[in-house]
Design a protein around this nucleic acid. Sequence first.
RNA 1: GCGGGGGUAGCCAAGUGGUCAAAGGCGACAGACUCAAGAUCUGUUUCAGCAGUGAUUCAAGGGUUCAACUCCCUUUCCCCGCACCA
Length: 957
Amino acid sequence: MKERYDPKEVEIKWQSKWKESRIFEPEPDDRKKFFITIPYPYLNGNLHAGHTRTFTIGDVIARYKRMIGYNVLFPMGFHATGTPIVGLVEQIVKKDPETIRVYNQLHQIPMEVLESIKTPENIVEYFSIEAEAAMKSIGFSIDWRRKFTTTEPHYKKLITWQFNLLHSLDKVVKGAHPVRWCPNDENPVEDHDILKGEDATIIEYTLIKFNLDGDILPCATLRPETVFGVTNLWINPKIVHMRLKVNDETWIVSKDAYDKLKYSDKSIELIDQVNGDTLIGKKVINPVTGSSVLILPASFVSPENGSGIVMSVPAHAPYDYLALRDLKGADLTVYGITEDVSSIPLIALIKVPEYGKYPAVDAVTELKVKDQNDPKAEEATKIVYRREFHGGVLTETTGKYAGMSVSKIKDVLTHDLIEQGIADVFYEFSEQPVICRCGATCVIKMVKDQWFLNYSEPSWKEQVYKCLAGMQIIPPELRVEFENKIDWLKDKACARRKGLGTRLPWDMEWIIESLGDSTIYMSYYIIAKYLDKFEPEQLKAEFFDYCLLGKSTAQNASSSTGIDIGIINAIRNEFLYWYPVDLRSSGKDLIPNHILFFLFHHVAIFPETHWPKSIAINGFVSLEGQKMSKSKGPILTLRSAVEEYGADITRLYILSTAEHVQDADWRNADIEATRKQFERFYKIAYDCLTEENNTNSDSTCELKFIDKWMLSKMQYRIIETTDALNRMQTRRAVQNAFYHIINDMKWYERRGGCASKKDILNTWVRLMAPFTPHICEEIWEQLGSGFISLNSFPEADISLIDRSAELAEEITGNTLKDIEEILRLIKLKPTRVVLYTAASWKKNILKKAIMMKKDNVLDMKTLMNALMSDPLMRPHAKDIPKFAQKTINDVQGMENELMVSLTETDFDETSALKESMDFLKRIVECDVEIYNADDAGYDPQGKSRIAVPMRPAIYIE
RNA sequence: GCGGGGGUAGCCAAGUGGUCAAAGGCGACAGACUCAAGAUCUGUUUCAGCAGUGAUUCAAGGGUUCAACUCCCUUUCCCCGCACCA
């Protein structure tokens, strides 16, 4: 161990020793196993600070588990399937300036390398080498024998097997789904291809088919339940409508709606045009209630929204109510309407606590909305909608749906109506327009004949809920998030036309989408170790059936694949040993995709005993307050961080800067501070080890309060660190194992503690080993034998917890603080400091009060009675009430631990202070005297009277 | 809109009923060391105070309690996800 800390030297030394000794290459044995995985990185860039955080947390847990006796499997692979790598190659090959800049300057790829990249394979090769080197440089304890890339032929065999299996289980089905579509490019539009309307989402409307003499007038609505309250339809008389043949029906819709329908999965044929005004005054049949309602004119109806035909529900929609009211007295005879339409009776169907029978009417009255053009109409609509959605219940008007809450009805009702053929689904963007990069306006297209993983299937979801219920989620608050996401997940298109990946085995023109192929790859880590034992073609279904599922026999698997039966047995046994996954630790961005699919596929394929055990989630990392971006910057690569600060400091910093799902902000000023603290740690260790060699007095020196205090403190640090690690609170763990102990050591040295430094260091280094393994190995080399990485994690020794020593240090520290505060205020250089510890009668009162608190009988009356009956107390009768009252207040809020310490130890304040007298003298630079108030000695101002337990009185000259 | 997470001193950030004027870090200021700078160490950093104290604070407002940053209600602001993309 050198006097000056050189991270690089230490890190290279230990990384190569670990490698030579193969200490992170576990084989099954009789220990308990722990299988931890981190999502493999996607190879379209270098590992950055975000990866650094997620992976370091995983490595710390792996190292910790190893030190507490588990046989730990911590493997790593690389993800390369999908489209981004293909896209990146295209950009690099055509020398896109922005791409070249980002990858050359931010990802730090030399120009000659960039120029040599021609194929996706080049990218995969380059980044996989870089990523492995990066992970090694920061000291992750990964078993590298098991690495693989998802584009390898062997791996594709697993995916083929998996999808065949899912297909046979009816988990992969054919269907159609809506996508954002550019009519000009004739392609789905991805996020980064959108010029305008990036936030637009696809909204599903229900289309209700009103009947007009055989023609269908479809009305799009987000609230299908209101069909029960329709009093009329609205049509804009100035708009030309289209009559269409839609499948077997005839529809009338606006021109815009016609354009949209062309991209749906229906067959559409234009018949002729219909002017809006010719429809007004006619009567249509409400397909749900069977009632006949009038079509009325309304200028507010816009052809761009929905079908261009609107159903009117004045009882619950302020606009409809207002429009109807506005028609009062209007002359509609031109449309053949002679009745007074404003007297059409409203139909209520939702009961909501805030309003009477007609919520729209009440809202309009309440907000004093004038007419349909009043901006407040919008507000009224929002309020009514929100209140009805959250608190509304359907009334008898809705027949069999009566009593259901509005928030639950939509899906059920839509489903029912579609089944009866009286409704349909209509898609619309949440905001318009959505413009493609090419300039064209995007539409929503139904992609037909698409392959889906039918995640929405209730029995599949049921299994996932069951799996989740049996899992530990870290942090626990996130469980509800998982439940919501499972609930939200719909069928997922799982095949694409382009990108890297495995072909769908039964429909070879499709490539399996790259999220679907990243779901059970954890099982492949077990196989990946044996890749040199067989060719890809040998990995037939029988192989996976037996090795992963135990179907049939090893003999059969061997004979149908030609793989040695010994290998087959070894793989099966290893699988049974390592599976299931004990912990999957990931960034929070992967919850709604990778992590969720990981659960779905595991429950579909594996028996319950092999379902995952726990999931841990962590937040992102930003740089000096700015969001990182792989493709635009800023970005900080793992390698450059390690280059600049060293592996251990980088690890320590990223672990300590935020907890769990909280986002971390990487700040150079802060990591510099970590570096300084770390160098201090190194110096303490170095001094301790070299002192030990020179003098031998330490171990023979008698233990003082301060030494016992340090040992005691250490036990708490161990307890806290262990507890934090068990909850995967790495920040808290580092606080305790590092920062708090540093501060303890500061105080310890300042107080002149001398004993057991080496013992303390021994514990401390082992406590730190999961976080900063390199330096700890380096120190351990001088302290113990073997690798610290394989040594045991410290366990707290309760017998070393010393409450008297803690009280002694507390009183010393507090007294010093008080003296310093007085000195600061009186601004004098002291010549004499006199301390008086509290009189014994006060200590008695405190103890009595604590005892009463324990028995739950503490109050002023009881305490006074007890005190006054004690003859020894009588001399102080005058002072007792005031002190007793104060004591009661103190004791009410006193921590249990302290009460125990005060009553159950034979701690003596005077002797504790006497022991630290030399220290106090040194700090205040004058003579210090200590008396007990019972026998005050020198006390010119009678200060001893104000002394209370744990708070000596002070007199300064 | 739906769902999730947040709002604590100049900044970052602990803190789920009493040990809290509130850990830790950064920054700032002062002192020690130094010819000096840096590093390091010590202290201060809401306000007032020449005796260890007092007053007012934890987004805003209200409530529960002997006691609230901590529990409940209302309001408000910020961040993230809402998909076929890894």
